[in-house]
């Protein structure tokens, strides 16, 4: 009986203290960590079309189309298929693709989630924060040049 009463006292204590741990989401924007991985942002000025992001992507989310001179023509990314592993950003040697903290995206159909390079360029920063600074301490860490072959195309 004491255990029962203890349990009931505990829930009543929570009911009376008036604190909540949920937030009113659309009105109160959640705190997102600087490292959070959201929708990609693409920079055509930086991109050197090395196609490493396309190669490393585990589920073929990135599609790059080049002309005969290997100039980039298209950069398509299916943000609905993406698993947000951040490997593309990790292998990019020039920071041309970056995962913003922006997690709010909607569409009516799946097809609309296929972003081309213009759409990827226009992805806004979340709360105007450029997450590049959060990457700073360890950006070089992944490289691991080692002895293996480097598969630049």
């Amino acid at each position: 009986m004491i255990g029962l009463l203890k349990g009931m006292a505990t829930t009543m204590k929570h009911a009376l203290d008036g604190t909540t741990f949920t937030v009113e989401y659309p009105d109160v924007a959640p705190e997102v960590s600087p490292r959070f991985r959201g929708v990609h942002k693409f920079s055509q000025e930086r991109c050197i079309w090395c196609r490493q992001c396309e190669n490393v992507c585990p589920n073929d989310t990135i599609q790059i189309v080049q002309d005969e001179q290997r100039n980039g023509e298209q950069y398509n990314l299916h943000i609905g298929q993406c698993i947000y592993c951040r490997l593309c950003e990790e292998v990019c040697p020039v920071d041309a693709i970056l995962l913003t903290q922006n997690f709010e995206f909607t569409a009516d159909t799946k097809d609309e989630f296929v972003y081309n390079k213009e759409q990827l360029k226009n992805v806004p920063w979340y709360k105007e924060i450029d997450p590049l600074n959060a990457r700073e301490p360890d950006r070089g860490a992944w490289v691991g040049e080692g002895e293996g072959e480097v598969d630049y195309q």
């Binding site: 997102v32 960590s33 600087p34 490292r35 959070f36 991985r37 698993i83 947000y84 592993c85 951040r86 490997l87 990790e90 995962l99 959060a134 700073e136 301490p137 360890d138 860490a141 992944w142 691991g144």
Partner: peptide, 25 residues
Amino acid sequence: LEDLTGQRMMYNYFRLGGVVWDLPE
């Protein structure tokens, strides 16, 4: 864990031979 890895569930934090990120500054 979100501060550490950048995701809340699908961390993808380990790499062969280590981890991808040091502690956040």
